[in-house]
Amino acid sequence: MMQPTTQQAAALKTLVIPMADDEWMIGHRGSEWLALAPDLEEDLAMSSISQDEMGHAELLYEVLHGLGEASADEAVYLRGPQGWRHAALTAAARGSWAEWVVRRYCYEVFDGIRRKALQRIPYAPLVAALQKMDREHAYHLTHFQSLVQTLAYGGPASRQYLEEAIREDWPKLPDLFEWGGRDEAWVSWDVAALAPSMMRAAFEQVVRQDFAAWQLTWPGNLPAADRAARHHDNSEFLAALLLEMREVRQVAPTSGW
């Protein structure tokens, strides 16, 4: 597929926008941990990982730009709340450190599954972007697995924080697996792995295995996704986030940054 048809381009957008927005939001929220991580070493590691995520988002916005969407800058700085398709978990406000560790671990596991499924779509710019992301994400997953493990074996208090965090994040997971667009988008590629039910099953399999290794109680099946998954049309919360994220740029909106 050198030049996608209009239909294919629309389907690709439905699949790539959620991933680009997820990466951007998780990177943005991650950047808020700067100077707040538990130690200097983790502060460096987390900032670096968050920069990676923002870089991945940029790569994906460029892929979308090639499909006729706005540029990366416009997507991030000018798009209204109704245009964003990130999962609620990625943009949730900063909570406890344990919550962030659980959130990031779950996101990395999920994102690996999603990248693997998307790699089977024969659109060269997307394949190239995913390959570049893969290299950095392998390390991200290892890092967050280590952090969960550290909390799991850091004594009773630390384990309690971890278990609370898992309970807190569990209900926020389901909309990760949704595309937020019409099912035709992924069905048209004939890639069964893109089906939300398949991604959920793959996610559960990995996380169950890890939880068993860390002797963590499985919190129960993931709840069903909301019909409005990845739509934030009336979210005051998102409007506030965008306002804060764009604050510096808005000081001089017409200048070239």
Binding site: D39, L40, E41, E42, A45, S146, T150, G154
Partner: peptide, 19 residues
């Protein structure tokens, strides 16, 4: 670096010295 395990120390070293 300070780290909770040797594996973690390798991860932290990577970020601190080999970016």
């Amino acid at each position: 670096v300070r780290a909770s395990s040797p594996e973690m120390a390798l991860q932290m070293a990577r970020e601190a010295y080999f970016r």
